[in-house]
């Protein structure tokens, strides 16, 4: 489903190269974890996947469902089924969460040539998704992410992910700033989305999240490259020996 081929990317403004030849394949139905120390390029990879303009792809390609997405803008990639759960979700003052969900869902439906969702159907879907994430419906009347706690923001991200039904979910440090209870709820939300025709990429610094979202594969990003790939045990190994041990091994 996702094929990253020799991907090089740099910061557009100052030319700093961050990704230096990433190769990664994630199949439909697979949950892939990407781990790595600070500054290894994890978040950059998520931004480049989602099409953020601050980064320039200088070499390589990203294939999604077999086609290159490099020429698509973030909204087009989203409509094609790519969802990024942000590490730091943005506040949108004056726009009620419910309203935002409606606009986003219908924008994607429109891009796919589907009809707008009728309000009662929309409400029903939102209510069900919110309940499964133990979210209060009152929160949906508040402007998106404005004054939300860290946990509420992450839940709101997962809520959007559920409702938008993406083919590829990229979760960027979704565990950061979550207490253990919230972490479990969020992980349950993600696990519920596991399906044979959907791929999930979990970017995380710590192994902790992977106790709850058990990955099929683990990839270690180091200095802008995938330095090592393995199965879920690799995450445990990393937890024990740290990245230094791995880097020593890789070097």
């Amino acid at each position: 489903m996702l094929e990253i081929k020799n991907l090089h990317a740099r910061i557009a403004e100052d030319g700093t190269e961050i990704l230096r030849g990433v190769n990664l394949t994630v199949k439909a139905g697979e949950v892939a974890a990407i781990m790595g120390p600070n500054g290894s390029g994890k978040s950059t990879l998520s931004y480049v996947l989602a099409g953020r303009e601050d980064y320039e792809v200088t070499e390589g390609d990203i294939l999604f469902n077999g086609g290159s997405i490099l020429e698509m803008d973030p909204a087009e990639r989203a409509a094609a089924g790519l969802f990024l759960a942000f590490q730091y979700p943005m506040e949108i003052p004056g726009v009620a969460t419910m309203e935002f969900l409606k606009v986003a869902i219908n924008a994607q439906r429109k891009a796919r040539g589907q009809e707008e969702l009728k309000i009662p159907e929309l409400m029903k879907r939102v209510r069900e998704a919110a309940q499964s994430l133990e979210m209060d419906m009152g929160m949906l009347k508040r402007p998106l992410n404005v004054g939300f706690s860290g946990g509420e923001k992450k839940r709101a991200e997962i809520l959007q992910m559920k409702l938008l039904e993406p083919r590829l979910c990229v979760l960027d440090e979704t565990d950061s700033g979550l207490d253990i209870d919230a972490l479990k709820v969020v992980a349950d939300g993600v696990n519920a989305l596991r399906s044979p025709d959907r791929a999930i990429v979990v970017i995380t610094h710590y192994q902790r999240l992977l106790n709850y979202i058990v990955p099929d594969s683990v990839h270690v990003l180091y200095k802008g490259r995938v330095a090592k790939s393995g199965e879920k045990d690799l995450a445990l190994e990393l937890e024990k020996n740290g990245y230094a041990g791995l880097v020593g091994e890789a070097a």
């Binding site: 989602a50 099409g51 953020r52 303009e53 601050d54 803008d73 973030p74 909204a75 990639r77 989203a78 409509a79 969802f83 990024l84 942000f86 979700p89 943005m90 506040e91 949108i92 935002f100 606009v103 986003a104 924008a107 994607q108 891009a111 959007q160 938008l164």
Partner: peptide, 15 residues
């Protein structure tokens, strides 16, 4: 901000 715009667009909403 670019951040805000990117966030909203990432949800499939054109620029």
């Amino acid at each position: 901000s670019e951040d805000q715009l990117f966030y909203v667009m990432q949800r499939g909403i054109p620029e």
